[in-house]
Amino acid sequence: MKEVVILSGKGGTGKTSITGAFAVLAGQQAIIADCDVDAANMHLLLAPDFAEKSDFYSGELAVIDSNKCTQCGICAYKCRFGAFSLSNGTYVLDPLSCEGCGYCQITCPEGAISLVPRKAGQVFVSTTKVGSTMVHAKLDIGAENSGKLVAKVKNSAQELAKLKHKELVVVDGSPGIGCPVVSSLAGASYVVLVTEPTVSGLHDLERIAGVIQKFRIPMGCIINKFDINPEMSNQISHFISSNGIDYLASIPFDPSFTKAMAEAKTIVETQSPAKLIIEEVWATLTKKLIN
């Protein structure tokens, strides 16, 4: 089984639109995983049915037993995150500030504090409009995107791929360069970077490529909207070739992307110049991966 992860560093480059297009092209050959759990969007393109859902827990959260609490204030004094405050004579905990370190539990002389698993979101296993299985998730507001939810989505997708004898897992990766991205990279066979020819696009591409190189995962790059700034596109091409990154394609600025999105379609379900390019990239990728 091979896994291709689509990443972008910065948002708005068209990563999800392109991943969605790959998912449609792959059809039932692949399992789809939406690891962009912070702002999951792929469900808007692939019309999953949300058939199975389960709660997701990550890390822990302190809970005060008010019957045992003597208001001594040691917890508030020890907590480095300012999670405890005195309200109407009793200590209350702000769950958004608590990091679940458990120091309060250890130091509470009354044993009034316990740690409970923290609900952080929901995970869904769905069937998409093309009949493939998709694993996706929704993070609760303010919950920490620790990478564990991403790992969970990926693991479920990989298990399903094994179970259903699928050769491919297509992963919409997380933005940024932090922990969730690292989690979305784990186990990847190939990374597709989607960038755009803007100063910030190149800047973020350099940072994300640096992270991937650490994991020694082969990668290729798509320059989306390349004609917005041909000179910057050249700079990006230069960066790609001098860093051992495969050049995959340049896609012109194409309003069909937004038009397709507004109709809940992927670009390959429309007639557009971008469609042909993406089909070609997908053919190259599958040849690279399944051999």
Binding site: G11, D38, A39, L96, G142, A143, E144, N145, P175, G176
Partner: peptide, 10 residues
């Protein structure tokens, strides 16, 4: 601010 709805935004 950073994008998203998780703890960095809060």
């Amino acid at each position: 601010c950073p994008p998203g709805t998780s703890c960095p935004v809060v």
